[in-house]
Design a protein around this nucleic acid. Structure first.
Length: 677
RNA sequence: UGCGAGGUAGAGCAGUUGGUAGCUCGUUGGGCUCAUAACCCAAAGGUCGCAAGUUCAAAUCUUGCCUCCGCAACCA
């Protein structure tokens, strides 16, 4: 395997239109932090770069909605995100932002470089333009009627009712989702990255040269290759972003997906003038940590960009994670279905490692996973506290009791003692191997195994019994136990940095390093350790219940917003349903019922007969409008007198978004009297 | 609909080139008392999504189906 001299580790730039939640942490930031912390402890030359992604349409929309500038939006979230990362112990060497001057310059320069090499093509297309909001509209921001199923709220890229994928120009009665105005088609010219020309190179690079990538990642790339890569626009008509540095490019900015990954480079530049060795030197290992939604950008598009620009190295690996769900549902920023990092830090002060542990243990490395609060509690209380914390406490307390906090002088090691050291060495090797191959979940498990070995060692050797009959042996036992503890302090650092600090304080040592973990004299005889203190606090039921309550509140709020959609009614049997006799019919006559606001008196041909029905639709329909209308009618409803007129059935109606009643009209040529089933 | 990735004990996950199904937590029983009622030992618990096929032998290979997730060209 290739030997690298230094590492450049990137973590997907969080989008600055909301705070960071546990899905981001489990998918990207915790794995990248484990990886870089590990490399740092081993003394490698590594930089970890990240920053806020601050451009793009959603941010401008949010600003508009709140009546502030996009800059104010990103300033707000950049601060929240940056602060919460720091407090959570995600240790970037630099956390930058794409609204920075240095980023604008770097991104513009990248564009120019590629452009000068003829790496773009220019194309003019027709796109919908919102004359009121004065901007071009992405397909997603156009709604209209689906040409296939007539669903009225279809998006410009897809109809969610019938699932057909659409292009915005197919929509009947298109409407801007931003202003509600009717958009018009306008010509616009854009630069495109001709990915099709890079396909051959990318296919070889990914499928042949990097067979060690995760199946999830390779699979998705394959999927793209099969369809065939197409040119992709790198510019956009918008006033928020990096201006396109070219002639005739007024009002055009670099499209966010082009701009964002360059943020890794500009962050590096901001960090060190010596940035080029991290991006242009073949001895450097570049690793991108991302979520699965970002695979195409980091495995296909960004490499194609880097390649076109020349000089740049390409990623060695892109360990993308799948998604984390929360209590069985997808995490959603807009629905507030999330555990926000800044809120966790407030609600669980000093318990960063509990979340780090739970999220690493449940990391969605190969498939989507579910996070539950009960699981966090169980992992913290039954694993971290019970196994790890308890062992450390046992060793420290025994040392305090028997040796006044001094590491005792051991006698010759017996077979059990030797076995312990052998296991520790093996565990350390497994952790290294797992981390280097991005198996952080497995690495964490191994780390805990070291604590288990400690507990078992104490339980098997029973120093508290032996102290009365063989005090010399107890010295060796406690010596060994303390070596295990010190090894733990080293091995846990990539995963549980706060615990590592505490543990080193308990051992009152700062001379531990990765290389001597698992060795027989990591903590020398005669060294005085500090006072025993608890490493972990338990997570109490009350804390969990408070969080669950918060979530159910979020759920309730969502339901309030979607109030128009009523919950499903109680299940009925087929017999119940078949009692209802619904027929198609035609309205023959309609007259307003005098002295009422709502009622129309209708004469309906039901196929069986002609009958009178009184219906509460007068607010929405004039009598002449409903004449001859095909309707569905429930005919065996018990007759009822309304304003003195006997109503002999009920016209089926639905309510639309504005509360207006609309007829359930049979499609096509249903004869009057046809049964509706 | 197409493509990709999953579906393995109550939960979360391993299972290398096909050869007796494993780990952690939880559950049950026992032991211990140095320790945050923590720790240690043992047991129970699985027709490996379903169906068919290849094979002496399939969680593992082939085919079909069911199901969940993602992507599908301007969605970041």
């Amino acid at each position: 395997m290739k030997k690298f001299k230094r590492y450049t580790v990137t973590s997907a730039l969080p989008y600055a239109n909301g705070p960071v939640h546990i899905g981001h942490l489990a998918g990207v930031y915790i794995p990248s932090d484990i990886y870089t912390r590990y490399l740092r402890i081993k003394g490698q030359d590594v930089i970890s770069v990240c920053g806020s992604d601050e451009h793009g349409v959603p941010i401008t929309l949010k600003a508009k909605k709140e009546g502030i500038t996009p800059q104010q939006v990103v300033d707000r979230y950049h601060k929240i995100i940056k602060d919460s990362f720091k407090e959570f112990g995600i240790e970037f060497d630099i956390y930058s932002r794409t609204s920075n001057k240095i980023h604008h310059e770097t991104a513009a320069e990248m564009f120019r470089t590629i452009n000068e090499k003829g790496g773009f093509i220019e194309k003019t297309t027709k796109q919908y333009y919102d004359t009121e909001a004065k901007q071009f509209l992405a397909d997603r921001y156009i709604t209209g009627t689906c040409p296939h199923c007539n669903y009225e709220a279809a998006y410009g890229d897809q109809c969610e009712k019938c699932g057909t994928s659409l292009s915005a120009t197919e929509l009947i009665r298109p409407k801007s989702a931003i202003s509600g105005a009717k958009p018009s088609l306008r010509e616009t010219r854009h630069w495109y990255l001709p990915l099709d020309k890079s396909q051959a190179f990318l296919e070889k690079w990914i499928l042949e040269d990097h067979k060690d990538w995760r199946p999830l990642v390779t699979g998705q790339c394959k999927s793209w290759f099969q369809t065939g890569l197409q040119p992709r626009a790198v510019s956009r008509d918008l006033d928020w972003g990096v201006p396109v540095p070219a002639k005739n490019a007024e009002g055009k900015v670099l499209y966010v997906w082009f701009d964002a990954p360059i943020g890794y480079i500009s962050a590096t530049k901001e960090y060190t003038p010596d940035w080029e060795k991290y991006w242009k030197n073949e001895d450097t290992k570049l690793v991108h940590f991302i979520g699965k939604d970002n695979i195409v950008f980091h495995c296909i598009i960004f490499p194609a960009m880097l390649k076109s620009a020349g000089d740049y190295i390409l990623p060695e690996n892109v360990p993308a994670n799948a998604f984390l769900n929360l209590e069985g549902n997808k995490i959603s920023t807009s629905k507030n279905w999330a555990v926000w990092l800044h809120e966790y830090l407030r609600d669980f002060e000093g318990q960063q490692d509990a979340l780090r542990y739970a999220l690493t243990a449940a990391a969605p490395e190969s498939k989507d996973n579910d996070f539950t609060w009960r699981d966090l509690q169980a992992k913290n209380n039954n694993e971290l506290t019970a196994v790890f914390g308890n062992f450390v406490n046992r060793a420290a307390v025994l040392t305090q009791k028997y040796y006044n906090n001094k590491v005792p002088q051991p006698n010759a090691f017996n077979q059990e003692d030797e076995a312990v050291f052998e296991k520790l060495v093996a565990i350390k090797a497994k952790i290294e191997n797992n981390i280097e191959n991005y198996h952080f979940r497995a690495a964490l498990k191994e780390m805990m195994q070291a604590a288990r070995i400690g507990n078992k060692y104490l339980a098997d050797s029973e120093p508290w019994k032996l102290v009365k009959i063989d005090p010399e042996r107890v010295k060796t036992i406690l010596y060994v136990a303390l070596q295990i503890t010190a090894t733990l302090a080293v091995l846990c650092e990539p995963f549980l940095p706060f615990t590592a600090v505490k543990l080193k304080k308990i051992l009152s040592t700062n001379f531990l390093n990765w290389e001597n973990a698992g060795t027989k004299n990591i903590l020398p005889t005669g060294h005085t350790i500090g006072k025993a203190e608890l490493l972990f606090a338990k997570v109490e039921d009350a804390q969990i219940e408070a969080q669950m309550k918060k979530l159910s509140q979020a759920k309730k709020n969502n339901q309030m917003e979607n109030k128009s959609i009523a919950a499903q009614k109680a299940t009925i049997s087929f017999e119940d349903f078949s009692k209802a006799d619904i027929r198609t019919g035609t309205i023959l006559e309609a007259t307003k019922v005098p002295k009422t606001k709502k009622l129309l008196k209708l004469l309906v041909d039901t196929g069986l007969d002609t009958r009178t029905v009184v219906s509460g639709i007068a607010e929405y329909y004039k009598p002449e409008e409903v004449l001859g209308k095909k309707v569905s009618i429930l005919i065996n409803l018990a007759p009822r007198k309304l304003k003195g007129i006997e109503s002999q059935g009920m016209i089926l109606m639905a309510e639309d978004a504005e509360g207006k009643l609309i007829f359930i009209t049979p499609q096509g040529d249903a004869k009057n009297g046809t049964e509706v089933n």
